[in-house]
Design a binder for these strands. Structure first.
Lengths: 348, 348
DNA sequence: TGTTAGCACTCATTTTAGTGGAGTGCTAAT
DNA sequence: ATTAGCACTCCACTAAAATGAGTGCTAACA
């Protein structure tokens, strides 16, 4: 059986009504509210066909129809229309991202916040995985007698540092020498590569005099590297799920929130997703707990290079058109902010 | 009317039973489970007295008694007993805090996590407000042609930095000069003091040659200071709320989670609280939404000085004795960790 | 042949009524 | 002062009945 023009129209009407109301939609309602020019009876016949084809389901015999995941998929692929954001929305987005220029993490956090506010869904934003970022140089700065600051600078401009308490006395020269040696060895390596590389023996044989120093510094160096690799995940609008009828049930709400509070797991899931705007609907999500959620993620870029993810999670019954438009607009904005300003300081 | 020995015993029994079961407790149950040596009828008389005195309430005529906030207050002040933690609990706490030595923020986060795990409540931990922390020195490090790293080191050992994109060319000498001037001006000042102090004119008149440089650096310096002042709030075990019968209601659970997701507000509330272990019960909390919550906070110290807060929030029906003991043990441990090691690196 | 009106049927939801039981408060006896 | 006994209250639970939205089918219609 083929999807006639009329069937598509009906399907679209059902989806848009259901997305709004969260109630199964019946033939009578449909014929009254949308002028399809056909009677409820005819609609019923078409709906029966659509159900047979897997686009609709029936909670029970005497209820209206509900779109299936397959219907949403069709909708997203073919039926849905991009929606131009309102001036106000654009303004809000621009302002929120503007206000926090210069503070990378804050900008990402604000992006998540504004996304959640506009969509009324739960949103999240992940800071870039610095996998491809390479090290630029390493510095060791004396602070006082037994404190030294370890500073690691990456090509991307990202900087990490850590105060080290020294167990052995040190001289400024030996510090500089060690820093140089480390820079020499690690420069150009990605963080992950650096993590697998152990130069401590080399250093120690090279310069036996500083073996104590290196033993003191290296473990902390490794830890800091790990830290740099770590992505941060921000979430906003967690309590928005309470507004969603589908989650008007303690058990469901609970497992939803539970899943999201497993940040590591969730981050991993996000990392696995392809780039660009990706929509996964209900059962398309591998995860059990997400069987009746849809996940929309998008990729943003920093300085043209790679990147972080941002998106929303909500019930499959979601305003796909609006939400994807918003996310698209938002990532465009993020890309711009991070391209032009990339850690610069042109304000004030 | 006075609180006789017997009334106290009965009250204690009611509280301990209710804390466990969350069900109103009746006279019969009480006389059966706790051997008070008196009959249900006598207990009923005493309960009537206790109710008149405001220690008990009645959900409805034919239900058992429930302790009032006043009863919990009495319990916390006079009746409750400290509980020695089990060896296992101590071990878990020690391990979790140990594993993250060196990473201040991580340690705080872990402390919150372990607290929530052991108590099965929602926990939170605030990093210290660095109000009293004074600046030690400021450094400007050349990275490349148009990038400079601004590094601020505080007495406490806390370090902040930021990459600056320079709009004007600079020399290494001018950088060092500016850094020295800044250090000279800001050293010994607290962060809040530093924020109110504008040295830009001084610098510019002092050394006209570097005016462009200073104008480039100072705004970012201020921003970074603000950042250092910011406290961070970690929360764990948010979904534990669902295990609590009192919150077996979407509306309540929602407003609870909502309140906690207003992190700024919540942080402010925490900052207002006195130091030491503070318990506020139900209506003692100013906040509307917290009328049926109890909040327990404690203060931990870094290097003997100031201070963060850590604690739990849960229903008024809470195991006050156990929880305060745990928090006390935990803060003792935190104090130790931060005293002995203060950013040190003695692991591995 | 596609469309529509009519009607019996289904089934979740809501309403109503009924019952059980935990617990109290009072009274009278000990 | 304590306790046993008993009537009374009121929530919690269950079963039964009413409601009503919506379907599927059949037969009439254009």
């Amino acid at each position: 059986m083929d999807l006639s023009e009329r069937k598509l129209k009906i399907l679209q009407a059902i989806i848009s009504d259901y997305v709004r109301s969260a109630e199964p939609v019946g033939s009578r309602t449909l014929s009254k509210k949308y002028d399809l020019g056909i009677s409820p009876a005819t609609i019923r016949n078409e709906m029966a066909d659509l159900e047979e084809m897997g686009y609709l389901t029936h909670p029970h015999t005497s209820a209206g129809r509900v779109p299936s995941d397959k219907a949403y998929r069709l909708y997203v692929n073919a039926l849905m229309e991009k929606k131009e954001l309102s001036g106000e929305e654009k303004l809000v987005i621009a302002q929120r991202l503007q206000g926090s220029v210069n503070e990378f993490e804050k900008t990402i956090e604000h992006a998540a916040a504004v996304l959640s506010e506009i969509t009324n869904l739960t949103s999240f934003a992940m800071t870039p995985a610095q996998n491809n970022d390479t090290l630029k140089f390493i510095n060791l700065l004396p602070v006082d007698e037994h404190t030294v600051v370890l500073m690691i600078v990456a090509e991307s401009g990202k900087i990490s540092n850590q105060a080290l308490r020294m167990k052995v006395p040190y001289t400024e020269e030996s510090l500089q020498l060690l820093a140089k040696t480390m820079t020499y060895n690690y420069k150009g390596k990605t963080i992950s590569e650096a993590l697998t590389l152990n130069i401590i023996e080399d250093v120690e044989t090279d310069i036996t005099a500083m073996s104590g120093l290196a033993a003191n510094v290296m473990p902390n160096f490794m830890k800091t590297l790990e830290d740099m690799l770590n992505v941060n995940l921000y979430m906003e609008g967690l309590t928005n799920i309470f507004d969603i009828p589908e989650y008007n049930d303690l058990g469901k709400a609970r497992s939803f929130l539970n899943m999201l509070s497993q940040k590591e797991d969730f981050t991993r899931k996000l990392l696995e997703r392809e780039d660009g705007i990706i929509v996964t609907i209900g059962e398309e999500n591998a995860d059990d707990i997400m069987q009746d959620c849809s996940l929309i993620t998008a990729t943003y870029h920093v300085d043209g290079k790679m990147v972080g993810k941002i998106g929303v999670i909500g019930p499959t019954r979601m305003q796909y058109g609006e939400v994807t438009s918003i996310i698209e607009y938002l990532t465009d904005n993020l890309n711009n902010v991070f391209k032009l300003e990339g850690g610069g300081n042109e304000d004030e």
